[in-house]
């Protein structure tokens, strides 16, 4: 079966998110609990203020699947509901087939770390 991952609406006011770092690449067999990527959400464009309300999130697999397609690079901004990745239950399924459903993932707020695209603290 083919699964898709679209940029989820994590925060009500968000318009999209920026990829901070990747933990998987196309062709990888991912287990339940595997890290997929870290995202940052900047609500600065929604609330006009000088201190940008930026929060960071990690997307983790909640089921096993093969990552087949991933159109993200660190620093890329993706709109809410934009298709980000395609998964399949076996390594060689035709990914041009329509997705059966959304892949099951967990989203958790995380602490900023030095491996992120936005750089270290200094």
């Amino acid at each position: 079966m083919i699964y898709e991952f679209r940029m989820p609406l994590i925060v009500n006011q968000m318009t999209g998110a920026t990829l901070e770092c990747l933990y998987a690449k196309p062709g990888d067999s991912l287990k339940m609990g595997s890290k997929l990527f870290d995202l940052s959400i900047d609500l600065g464009s929604v609330f006009a203020q000088e201190c940008p309300p930026v929060s960071f999130f990690r997307v983790v697999m909640r089921e096993a699947a093969w990552l087949r397609k991933l159109e993200l690079v660190p620093g890329k901004f993706s709109q809410v509901d934009e298709e980000i990745a395609i998964f399949s239950t076996t390594p060689d399924e035709d990914i041009d087939e329509p997705a059966t459903r959304t892949i099951r993932t967990t989203v958790a707020g995380i602490v900023h770390h030095d491996g992120m695209w936005t750089g270290s603290q200094w």
Binding site: I10, M32, G33, K35, M61, T106, V107, A108, G109
Partner: peptide, 13 residues
């Protein structure tokens, strides 16, 4: 706390 998370298991962390 946050309504933006949907963590059902902390095993992956």
């Amino acid at each position: 706390t946050s309504g933006y998370e949907d963590v059902s298991s902390y095993l992956p962390f």
